[in-house]
Write a protein that binds this DNA or RNA. Structure first.
Lengths: 204, 204
DNA sequence: AAGAAAAGTTGAACCAATTCTAAAATTGAG
DNA sequence: CTCAATTTTAGAATTGGTTCAACTTTTCTT
């Protein structure tokens, strides 16, 4: 089934994503005109709209790749977590946050988040919501793992804690990308402080 | 100082907001064309842009009024809270959530939230961020009040708890407005379940 | 009360995303 | 190799938010 047509299709996809990634970073989301993306990817405007429903979905594809990478990186931590609740959470959250600006600028994050709330039923809107859920589940899985090992009390509501932690982190991350001058270490410190409450409640 | 010019200005402001409120609800945010808002408000397109920087700021003005009402309603709870931590939080959060759809549809909320992350430096973007902060402070104030009364342990980090509770609630609210079929009682129940962890940690 | 200055209003023009069309190119099957 | 199906292409048309230069209205000054 790997005919020429398939390969060319995949190639065009890649060229569009590459062009968009570059231009989004260089010129910003608004500044990256579809016409320019098409030119750089060496396809026509029509082709772009044949591959993606709208400009937001192009950004969506980029964001999804990034988040999936982060999810993968997180698996290791869940499998063999640091030996106390505080460090375990801090390590997992650290992975999420430290990776977050690898491929995406803050402006790209802002746009992506905006689109996902604005058009929750678009392909990207649904994908983004799904990614949030999977991230939440990964945190909950870590809590469950810690309960198994005996590092966390087993009488607490693990999923609820996972949701609290994710929702708080996510909201803090949103505020973080809204301010260009905000720094990653400060973000992590603030989240650590908030999580201390929960760590105390479940850790011992 | 209450010259003709002042009165006309105030009147035009009101007419624009009234027209926009109606049209946003009837036709949705995207469906409400600036041209239509201008026509209904009996001003020209240019005048609208003289009063508001962009379409989002019109919605922003409406949202701000709504949130300010909610903040006011919350003051009562902080002043004399119910006699245990769980009920106090539930009452305050209840006020926020139950008021939320009085004037604004879910679609309007989605747009407002999207705009506030997309354009954090626009007038509305800054106003929205400020409102979030004030809401957070109100929750923190409630916690502080409960500590004063002796209903909450005074050795816990009140502000951090306030942030956790607000951020979690806000994120849950975002997911709530993203799904048209989501119901308020379910939202409240889910938040209550999450908060139980915190209530247990600080309540006694 | 007249004239000038300040402030505000107007709508046509602009811009970029998106849609649409008809022609041209490419691929896979027979 | 040829044909039919699929895809791409260029470009024109559409659409709706936003801008801007010219025009009015209000206020101030004398």
């Amino acid at each position: 089934m790997s005919g020429l047509r398939e390969r060319q299709k995949a190639d065009r996809h890649r060229r569009i994503i590459d062009a968009a990634t570059t231009l989004f970073r260089d010129a910003g989301y608004e500044g990256a005109k579809i016409e320019a993306i098409a030119a750089q990817a060496e396809v026509s405007i029509g082709t772009i709209y044949n591959y993606y429903q709208n400009k937001g979905d192009i950004l969506g594809a980029i964001v999804s790749m990034e988040v999936n990478e982060v999810l993968n990186a997180g698996r290791g931590v869940v499998a063999s977590p640091p030996a106390n609740v505080g460090d375990a959470l801090d390590t997992l959250i650290g992975i999420y946050i430290e990776h977050s600006l690898n491929y995406l600028s803050k402006e790209m994050w802002r746009q992506a988040m905006a689109i996902s709330t604005q058009l929750p039923d678009s392909p990207f809107g649904q994908a983004y919501t799904a990614l949030d859920r999977v991230l939440t589940e990964q945190i909950s899985a870590l809590i469950a793992r810690l309960q198994q090992i005996g590092l966390a009390r087993s009488d607490i509501d693990g999923p609820a804690v996972g949701e609290l932690i994710f929702n708080n982190m996510n909201m803090m991350f949103i505020e973080f990308v809204k301010r260009d001058e905000a720094k990653i270490p400060d973000l992590r410190a603030a989240i650590r402080r908030q999580n201390r409450i929960l760590v105390a409640a479940i850790g011992g």
